[in-house]
Amino acid sequence: MTPRVRASLEWVAVHAFAVAATLFFVLPFVFVALTALMTDQQSLSRDLWPNPFQWHNLVDVWQTPGFGTWWRNTLVYAAAGTVLTVVSSVPVAYALAHFRFRGRRLAMMMVIATMMLPPQVVIIPMYLVWAKQLHLSGTLWPLIIPLAFGDAYSIFLLRQFLVTVPREYLDAAKVDGAGELQVLLRVVLPMIKPAIAAVALFQFFYCWNDYFGPQIYTSENPGAWTLSYGLGTFKSAHHTNWNLTMAATLLVMAPVIALFFMAQRAFIEGVTLTGVKG
């Protein structure tokens, strides 16, 4: 086989694989969108193409009682959770990266251990405290308040980024008479903007997608449901068939995917950070 034949065979193989992969990643979205526009009857058949296109499915789902509330709750949870996580995690990550103290290694190990901890491990005592002692089940508080105490994953990511900030910058600022807090706010924060953006995005997505937390803490009060939890109950609670269920699915997926297209770079950088620097 001549090198040229080989090269073109390789080109064909690579591009065939690329087409197959593209179909695999894209077709699910396409079928979800198509089904979301079908009639009841069609969504229970083997048809692949809507006929007629029933655009008002999307409007119907949007107007389902509760959908607006779920949206608002999800936004509150994700926004408050993100802000609190960043504010509480940055100083901890900074201390772990640049302060020298006894037990630092132990602290780092604890951060990693918490990061790896399945939420189900501690959920029962946590639920008992929130529900039986504080009577806050059925609200978003049990989901939001813990995020004011630093999130292990965010601390870890920020710290990985912070150790790459050269000491000389910090020392130079300190020579000018700045305290640690000032150094952090004036010198370090501007330098780690990409990492903060990545952490904020990850946390936002985590809250937006979280199902377990809302299931445990908000399920008893439909007024506190989030989109993920509401969507999980959508099919049974509203006795809908696949068309409306897929329309709801589409409406829950759309904002996150849109956000991703807008903030793509920060994302990809963040993911790369988790893997390569880790």
Partner: peptide, 20 residues
């Protein structure tokens, strides 16, 4: 009135007690 409640939720809420 609160509607659409399932037994799992009843079970949880009865244990939680409280004003809600």
């Amino acid at each position: 009135v609160v509607g659409g409640i399932t037994d799992d939720k009843i079970n949880q809420a009865l244990r939680a007690g409280g004003p809600q």
